[in-house]
Design a protein around this nucleic acid. Structure first.
Lengths: 190, 190
DNA sequence: ACACTAAACTAACAAACGTTAGTTTTGTAT
DNA sequence: ATACAAAACTAACGTTTGTTAGTTTAGTGT
């Protein structure tokens, strides 16, 4: 079942290289060398360099979108929703560490409808998060400060997790979730 | 006095392009077109594409390093030092918005001693910030939570300011400083 | 008018780029 | 052994890349 196809291996190695150097600085020959094959052989499995980028970014973006939609529909109070968002980010980060580099730094190299699709998901995600914050403010459980700054502050931390986590050796996942929930909730609680 | 040399104009336009697309995706012909000249003409003013990147990144890194050194030496309590760091980031961000894109996303394309120099400044900066946090914890003014998570949380927000600020129309600088100090301090206060 | 300098130009280079076409190797099931 | 499919290979393509060398233009002070 859990069989990694050759294409999946290529996507994984590409993600690692893109994280390290950025999409534009990685050549198909670099990727081929990492796979132990010649550049032309890559095209037996993928149709273009661009396709790799699209696949990596959109598949992670979809995970965020789905997760957020579930959270928004859940019937819990706003602070619990924020906690769920923190957990979502930690889970997605741990499972898609490398691809998150492309999502954060190389999305602007998407083209056409892939770019539109990405931007739509990103905006939708932010809007949902924004609604949670506003709901928290009007219910008095979130601090009555500039909501955009709180949104940005929490989101920027969550979005940068993929850079920070690997540097910090062996932090237990549950410890990380607990501490991160505490820290981020503290920054917005009323 | 405040005369912008031709080289300075090139550096400014390059920073804007690097922010938009990343260092590797910007060609010398792109930069030349933005300057309204031919690519070869750029070399009357700069010696290589690489020199542009080094200049942009290291000059901003030096501003952070100098600012942080001043703050560390000041005789105020830890929370006031954190507030000063917030202000430092906002000031540097407003004055070097575009170059911060390169510093954050393209530093890995530095080479040799420029790369070592950058990494040394970056590590020194983080260590100083770390000391402030620890000092705050032992004095009981900073929350007794995982210091690395608090450090990461605050720093990731400050480092991403350059992406967020330009999207948020006309936020008054002093309002921004006040709100940001409040938000970030709230996330670490005891 | 002349000299000087800053800053543009044209033309070209060798290297590296993504990608293609066609061929050979390798492993597996019959 | 034979057939088939997956996945590698070699060779080459047209472009684009950063950069150089040498030349021309425009503005300024004498």
């Amino acid at each position: 079942m859990n069989n990694l196809t050759r294409k999946d291996e290529i996507l994984a190695q590409a993600a690692a290289l893109f994280l390290e150097r950025g999409y534009s600085a990685v050549t198909m020959r670099d990727l081929a060398k990492k796979m132990g094959i010649k550049a032309a052989s890559l095209y037996n499995h993928i149709s273009s360099k661009h396709e790799i980028l699209e696949t990596l970014i959109l598949s992670v973006a979809e995970k965020f979108t789905e997760g957020m939609n579930t959270i928004v529909q859940s019937k819990v109070d706003p602070l619990q929703k924020v906690e769920a968002v923190v957990d979502l980010h930690i889970d997605v980060t741990l499972n898609n560490q490398d691809a998150l580099g492309s999502l954060n730094n190389d999305w602007m190299h998407l083209e056409g409808k892939a770019l539109l699709n990405f931007e739509e998901m990103r905006n939708g995600y932010e809007d949902n998060f924004r609604k949670i914050i506003h709901e928290g403010i009007s219910k008095g459980v979130v601090a009555n400060r500039n909501p955009e700054i709180m949104l940005f502050s929490v989101l920027s931390t969550l979005r940068t997790l993929y850079l920070w986590y690997p540097k910090k050796g062996e932090i237990d996942v549950n410890t990380l979730k607990t501490d991160m929930r505490q820290s981020l909730l503290a920054s917005i609680k009323a």
